[in-house]
Design a protein around this nucleic acid. Structure first.
Lengths: 283, 283
DNA sequence: ACACCAAATGTAGTAAAATTACAACTTGCA
DNA sequence: TGCAAGTTGTAATTTTACTACATTTGGTGT
């Protein structure tokens, strides 16, 4: 865990002098990591052993070890904590907060992804006769993006924003078709219905949605993304970003998989051509 | 810069013994940060001053300072380096690489954003009579997403995928209208034309595009995102993600500026959606 | 091939930093 | 008031890092 947060949390448990040290470090962590224990003791107006005890209380081996932890907390990237925007924030603040929370959400999403399912879905997609991407509301643009990506692969791809078109499309599904349904909550009624229609027409249904949702129960495969809930009103839907990134992952997997096959194919063509050519040694 | 990369890069410039130290550190950086200079010297089979000189050569103040840098490089999150996917990668690897490069790109984008322009654009949007979002290809889905976000604000928002519709819409622009054009490269001809049409009809044109592009020259305001170029074939378009996040930033700025009354309105929109969803307690 | 110079490396001593053990001081409670 | 538990500081010890200088290595020109 981030040691800066830890200091803030344990603040109550510290003794008076230890708290002095905590204040100084929190106020100026960058200085702290470049100071010796003596300097820091003087700044906090306590003795050196007090600083040392402070470090130990935070489960570090001693002052140098503490500095290491602190340095890591301060390292670029780590402090991507889900910081919420509040009303008093200026443009600089909310810009940074949003970027940082987005990155934090991506990190959480990354860790929650089940690689095996990704692999199976990629497998499925490469073998699909037709791929459909459907989503509603905020997820519609994600489906839209997926269309863009997969369209380049020269595969039959389908995307509709309209519920009725989505339904009709699913009714025409058959064995070998893959329907990818995107929904953060997984509670959108019409999308759940579409999953049922697609399944009853022998299509494989892949859900990019949250686990244990009504939608996930209707899917053949579920790629769940555990993105922190967008509880805050100002909070952007980080889930979309995670979904898009997941689409990127699928598209990449697709390219890699098809790439291999494609290269083998190339080689076979070359071999076939050889017969119609003069060999090098014949020259 | 990440010190681990630095070590790898400068490897050639090192002396024989220094290289020994480099090898040991690269092979086991986690151990290195918890070792004293003496231990590390013994492991590398060199003398202590050699280790010290090694540290100095990397522009650190000495061994402790070097450890600090190393710790930061090893910190969770920092190694979000743009790692490229290669053909031999398995699902686990490419998934991680894509998430990490996306995060890395977001970080770069964050640093490149001009907050003042963000502020001015938010200002503009809050006062706009009508807001249009246009993009083509991959950027179309970003515009689509923007539509979704701003639609909730109960502001007249327009979005078209069709070039002709985009043109016509811009021809009907008037003073007070804001047209947001999204394009990673900023070299899409028809989008540049649309910018010109919109401007000549007194609309304010905001470009979410790269600086110094043809499109940027036609815009009233440019929000440039310096996202690393997607050179690699397997590389996903991280630029879209950055654009989306920027849209989030604008939307958030918009909400903040509009104040309390407006936020109540937002809540009402959310409540309305409830009817189309399965309730949590229904499970 | 040899001598010489410069760069690289190591040795030993020194300075600095961190830790330990213990003493003195608070603080709360009987 | 006095004592016990917890807190803080002092001083000595140990560990760690650094510096100055000596030795070695490798390369270059005669």
């Amino acid at each position: 865990m981030n040691i800066l947060e830890k200091i803030t949390q344990n603040k109550a448990a510290f003794s008076k002098s230890e708290r002095k040290v905590a204040e100084i470090i929190l106020a100026n962590p960058q200085t702290a990591i470049h100071s010796s224990i003596a300097t820091l003791a003087k700044m906090s107006d306590v003795s050196e052993p007090t600083v040392n005890r402070f470090c130990r209380r935070l489960d570090t081996k001693g002052f140098p070890d503490f500095k290491l932890h602190l340095a890591q907390s301060l390292a670029n990237g780590t402090p991507y904590v889900n910081r919420h925007v509040d009303e008093s924030d200026g443009p600089g603040e909310y810009t940074n907060k949003i970027f940082e929370s987005t990155m934090a959400s991506l990190e959480v999403a990354r860790q929650s992804i089940d690689v095996n399912t990704v692999n199976r879905v990629v497998d499925l997609l490469t073998q699909a006769q037709k791929i459909s991407f459907f989503g509603l509301g905020a997820s519609a643009s994600v489906a839209h993006d997926a269309l863009n990506k997969f369209f380049r692969f020269n595969v039959p791809v389908v995307y509709f924003e309209d519920i009725l078109m989505q339904r009709m499309s699913c009714m025409n599904c058959s064995d070998g078709d893959v329907v990818v349904l995107i929904s953060h909550t997984g509670r959108t009624k019409s999308l759940v219905e579409i999953a049922q229609i697609a399944r009853s027409n022998d299509a494989t249904v892949v859900g990019i949605t949250s686990a244990d949702s009504p939608l996930s129960k209707e899917c053949t495969y579920v790629l769940s993304l555990e993105v922190p809930e967008d509880t805050d009103m100002y909070m952007p839907m980080a889930s979309r970003i995670a979904q898009l990134t997941l689409i990127d992952v699928l598209a990449t997997g697709f390219t890699l998989r098809r790439g291999n096959k494609f290269r083998e194919n190339l080689k076979r063509v070359k071999d076939t051509l050889r017969g119609s050519r003069f060999d090098k040694r014949d020259l």
